[in-house]
Structures are given as structure tokens and as C-alpha cells.
Design a binder for these strands. Structure first.
Lengths: 241, 241
DNA sequence: ATAAAACCTTGATCTGAATCAAGACACCGC
DNA sequence: GCGGTGTCTTGATTCAGATCAAGGTTTTAT
């Protein structure tokens, strides 16, 4: 299968991949040209269509994944089919490292939320490079630490905050990610959003309505106007709606 | 302040610390005698009494902490004083690394649950050692990865399982930690336990009763006999009580 | 462009667990 | 042993949010 990526460069699905993308990724900042070259030689590209599984909880993990295009989710499923999303990642983010460093298998599953291009770095050769590059090691430690921090926030939200507070916090985070615009566009469906903040689509719908009635936001399908950031801030700090 | 530790060696609170303890810690396995010596030169010991804070959420983190004796909890508090415990650590465990690798400050607070001896490794010198020792780096990555895994389990429990399932899972984990004995002793109070699994003391009390009535366990104050591990296993997999 | 599939809203009802309020128990120093 | 302090239990009540059900809207793939 032969195609061209958005830079017009030719590539082959599942084959070697150029360094032009790799050097834009935070994890690889500070690496020498040599090291980037080495990485490019071990990188493999894969494409996924919307809804396709990237890996399953319990699978053996054989390398790290990097999102080049599209969005993916990392999630857990309960016995009875309920889903909790742990992360949603877009271009430049890495995922799937836990089994690389800890052995064992994936603690969660991963699926493409839209057509996605993923770069894969096989474990053994990545680890070898890691042991020869303190900068890469420190970047990796920083990356895992950021995720630990994110998880503490998520646990706090699930355990100590109510749904309106979690939703308000999510909207404010979105705004921060989108240049602090008062108008934000939801990057995921409301159904996915409900799985991310640990509730149901019905509840999300009702809360949006209530927040609209309270003058905090105005919802237009997938675009939400944050009319009262102050109020949202207060609500996110465990206020009541 | 001068005293003797349990090995009879003399030490000074807040001063240099011997390598005999350090080499028993998983994080430092595979290190050379030289490197252990370096570590011992930067290690500082501190003692805490029951209930004393080790650090507060939002504080600047300037190094990593290792439990030598006693137990500590890492936790978050909500606006209205409710607590969610993120980890409980005992001898040999490390904590407080997130700010070391990510900059910024502690995402959670830490308190001694009993009189505790803690070894502290200041950030700058620890990081310097890290960049010269691939083994230490890999150990650290493995450690953070294990914690990411633990967090995925905790999030799954909070979001996807009900209180009886979480409690059953906790009891089975305890049993595994205590040689798979059918009789386990609670290492923490029931009030702390309720904060760990994300509920209240009242609910814990009721669930213990229900599980007793169902013939799954028998509770004697702080000792619990797991009478039906099969049944507990099933209950922990999201069964209903 | 169109049909099918996913997604979203709204209302009615149900339920697990929190909260509030007292007592009972257990462990501590004296 | 004894009183006191902190921890645990038990019951009554309340509530946030899940679930069930059904109709309407948007998105996606072809």
C-alpha cells in the first residue's frame, strides 16, 4: 500500500519513516541528529480507521506509539460494557509505554476515534537508544510524570467532585487548549465526553441545559460559548449548580 | 539530635545516611557499589510522627522520598474537606517524584500514618546520578510505569465498580500481600480504608456486615477472615451483593 | 445527495450510597 | 480496673445521577 503523507513525502504503510515528523515531537527534543536518524530507522507507521482498535487491555506491549494525525482514546471497559476513558491523545502525543518499561501487558485498551496515523517504535531498539541517551530518558520520565499528575486530577474529580464541577473543569481545560477563546469546539462527541468524565450522555445533556439556563454557557451543537468563565471556575471548584 | 537506627549504626537526623538501607530498595537494584556510595552521600534522613505532614499539595518538590519505616499516605483533599487516598506506602517504596521530573509542584499531599522514618534524596544530585546511570533510569521508568498501572486500576474501580466490588478487591489484594493467608489484618483504620476506596465509614461498616451475612468474610475488629475467596473474586469482578 | 447509522434530548422512574443523628465499642494512659 | 477519647456501628432519610424508554437530530459513508 503506497500513499503520500501531508508533507507530500512518499511512504509505505508499515515501513520505515522519515525524521521530519519525529523531530517535532516533545519526547524527542534535545536529541542529536544522529539519534533522530536512529529513531527514524526503527519507526514504523500504521494507519487506523475510525473505531479500529490499536491495542487491547491484556495484550503484550511491544513498543511505544506516537499519534501523527487524528485522535485516539485509551480506555477501560467494565464487565457489563461500561466505558471509562483514561486519555484522549492527538498529534505529538505518545502512549502505550507502560508495558515497555514494566513488562507485563497493557493495563487498558486503545481505539482510533477518527482516521489516524500512528508511528510505532519497537520496544527493544527504543530501550537500547534510551540507555544511551540521558536526554531521551529524562524526557520520558517527564512524560510519565505528567501523566501521573493527570491521573491524580482525574481521580480527584471522580471521587471528590460532582458531575457539574467535572464538566465545568473540562470546558475550562478545553478553552485553555484553544487559546483561551470563549468559544470552544468539542473535539469529541458528547457520548465520548460522558465516558471521559465518568457519567452518561443523558446526564451530560441535562447538565449542559442547566448550565445554559444559569447563563454560564451557550451550546450550539458542537460549539460551546463560555459566557461566564468566573462562574465556571467557581463551579469547577466543587460548587453546586 | 543523635540516635541509633535498628541496625545499631549511629546516625544524625537530617544528616548523611548509610548505604545498607539503600541497597535493599528495588529502585536501586543493579547499581554499582560506587553509585550506591554516591547515593548514600546525598541521602538525608527525616523522622515524622503519626499524623505529621510530609508535604502539601502545591508545595515545590525538591527531591524524592523513600519510606524506611512506618506507613505514609498520599492523598487529595476536596474543598469541603473530603479526602481521597491515592497511595499508601510502606518500607522500600518511593514517592514524591512527580515534581522532580516534571518541574511544577506536588499534585497531592503526604502524611505519616504512624511514626515513620523517611530517606530524602535532593533533586539536583539525584538527577545528576540518573543521567549517568541507565540502570537507575530504567528502574525509575519501571517504577513510574507501575504507578500509572495502579492508577488505571483505581480509576476503573472508582468509575466502573460499586463499593462492594471495590471492598472485595481490596481484601483480596491484602491477602495477596500477606502470603495469601485467609486471615488478613487491616493495616489501616476503617476510616482510612473508606477514604482509600472512595466511600464513607458508614458504608464500609454496612458492607462488611452484608459480606459477613453472605458468608464471604468474618470480621473481628481489625482482623478479617476471608471465608469464601471464590465468592469475593466474583464480587470484585463487579458482581452484586 | 441520500439513506443508514450514530448521536442527542427529554421525561419518568429507580437506586446506591451520602448524610444526619445517636449509641456502642475499644483502646489509651493513669 | 476506670474514665475518657477516638473509632465504629446502626437506623432513618435524602439525593445525585443511573436507567429505561422513545422521539428527534446530526453525521457519515457511499
Amino acid at each position: 500500500m503506497c500513499c503520500r503523507n501531508r508533507h507530500g513525502k512518499r511512504f509505505f504503510t508499515g515501513e520505515l519513516y522519515g525524521i521530519d515528523i519525529l523531530q517535532t515531537i516533545a519526547l524527542f527534543s534535545g536529541l542529536s541528529a544522529d539519534q533522530l536518524e536512529t529513531l527514524s530507522q526503527i519507526a514504523v507507521r500504521k494507519t487506523y480507521h475510525r473505531g479500529e482498535m490499536i491495542f487491547h487491555e491484556g495484550d503484550k506491549g511491544n513498543g511505544i506509539y506516537i499519534v501523527e494525525t487524528g485522535r485516539i482514546k485509551v480506555f477501560k471497559l467494565s464487565m457489563d460494557g461500561k466505558e471509562q476513558i483514561l486519555h484522549i491523545y492527538g498529534p505529538g502525543h505518545t502512549f502505550g509505554e507502560v508495558p515497555v518499561f514494566q513488562g507485563k501487558n497493557f493495563p487498558a485498551s486503545s481505539m482510533a476515534l477518527e482516521p489516524a496515523g500512528i508511528i510505532f517504535l519497537p520496544r527493544d531498539r527504543f530501550v537500547k537508544l534510551l540507555t544511551t541517551s540521558p536526554a531521551l530518558g529524562m524526557n520520558m520520565l517527564a512524560d510519565l510524570s505528567r501523566r501521573l499528575r493527570d491521573f491524580t486530577v482525574q481521580i480527584e474529580a471522580l471521587s471528590l467532585k460532582e458531575v457539574p464541577a467535572r464538566l465545568a473543569a473540562y470546558l475550562l481545560t478545553l478553552s485553555r487548549e484553544q487559546n483561551n477563546e470563549a468559544r470552544v469546539s468539542l473535539p469529541i462527541s458528547k457520548a465520548q465526553l460522558s465516558n471521559l468524565i465518568g457519567t452518561t450522555p443523558e446526564t451530560i445533556s441535562r447538565m449542559f441545559k442547566k448550565m445554559g439556563d444559569a447563563g454560564l454557557i451557550a451550546v450550539q451543537t458542537r460549539t460551546i460559548e463560555l459566557q461566564d468563565k468566573e462562574g465556571l471556575e467557581e463551579l469547577s471548584e466543587s460548587g453546586r449548580l
